[in-house]
């Protein structure tokens, strides 16, 4: 199979035709840069915190954020990488090694924060309490910790934007998870630019890979030669997301364009969801840590207390 634009051998078949290496790389970068422009994700004076793990998504988005800034000659803008070490043995240290190497090679400052320093325990140390005593999934606790530490640390470092590596598959999964669980309030927080209200406690979160399927992100990282070792979180299969992911991949294999369809349909109704929730949510500050919350105590502090009992 050859590329639809030239006679070179194709590396991927897309809905509009097959592409060779060079045409795929251009196509992918164009889509990311168009997404950044369309949703006004980055500006010339931004201090950009890229949330990173060392996986294909975060390395790709880190590389392309830097490239976008250089391309647009944003001389006042700067980028740094931020990673959270949840404390998952035989997993996180491998991805952080790849990340550290990448940041050194690409001259990006990197900060790593450890969950244990804030929550007193690693995810491994608290696993038994989470699953047996509290009947929760480790992914739920990990998600709350990560969001909290990313937002708090980015704010402390003066970031004006947080860039995340969420791709089209991640978003389609999150949309379906919220629909299946009737979480309309959480659904309103999704989208290419996250958050419902502008608030001094929140740094705007943006997702440049929003319209890029996961398979294309992996291919881009591979063709660019980013070192990404496959490392599997020992808890990932316990999460609800894993089942949704399998279901959507089975649909996608049979009915091409399923994930795009989910995300594009969601984008059409997202303004209504955000507008409806503007009225509902009052943002307070947590009485324990001072971070933003819609309750008296934020989820992270509530969870920290719960896991200590």
């Amino acid at each position: 199979m050859n590329c639809i634009h030239c006679s070179e051998k194709a590396v991927i078949e897309l809905q509009h035709g097959a592409l060779c290496k060079n045409h795929f790389l251009s196509h992918f970068e164009d889509r990311v840069f168009t997404t950044i422009n369309r949703y006004k994700m980055l500006g010339p004076d931004d201090l950009i915190c890229v949330a990173t793990s060392g996986g294909k998504d975060s390395l790709t988005v880190l590389y392309l954020t830097q490239k976008y800034i250089k391309k647009h000659k944003y001389k006042n803008a700067a980028v740094f990488a931020l990673a959270v070490d949840e404390g998952i043995e035989n997993y996180r240290e491998k991805t952080l090694q790849d990340l550290t190497k990448f940041c050194t090679e690409h001259n990006v400052p990197l900060t790593i924060v450890k969950s244990k320093d804030t929550f007193n325990k690693t995810l491994d140390e608290t696993y038994q309490t989470i699953t047996e005593k509290k009947n929760k999934k480790p992914c739920h606790v990990c998600g709350v910790w990560r969001r909290y530490l990313l937002n708090k640390t980015a704010k402390e470092m003066g970031a004006t934007k947080i860039v995340t590596g969420h791709n089209l598959d991640d978003e389609a999964q999150a949309i379906m998870m919220n629909i299946f669980k009737a979480n309309t309030s959480l659904a309103g927080r999704l989208g290419p630019v996250s958050g419902i209200k502008e608030n001094e406690h929140f740094t705007s979160r943006v997702k440049p890979l929003y319209l890029c399927p996961e398979k294309e992100v992996r291919l881009y990282a591979l063709l660019k030669g980013f070192q990404v070792h496959f490392a599997e979180c020992p808890y990932s299969k316990e999460g609800y997301r894993h089942h949704i992911q399998e279901m959507l991949n089975n649909f996608e294999e049979q009915y091409k364009g399923t994930k795009q369809g989910i995300v594009r349909s969601f984008l059409a109704i997202l303004p209504l969801l955000k507008e409806a929730q503007k009225e509902e949510k009052i943002i307070n500050t947590c009485t324990l840590c001072g971070e933003a919350t819609s309750k008296e105590i934020c989820n992270a502090c509530a969870m920290k207390e719960e896991l200590m009992t």
């Binding site: 996986g55 998504d57 996961e214 992996r218 496959f230 490392a231 599997e232 979180c233």
Partner: peptide, 8 residues
Amino acid sequence: LLSVISGG
């Protein structure tokens, strides 16, 4: 066979 799905 390279895995498309991240392990996290």
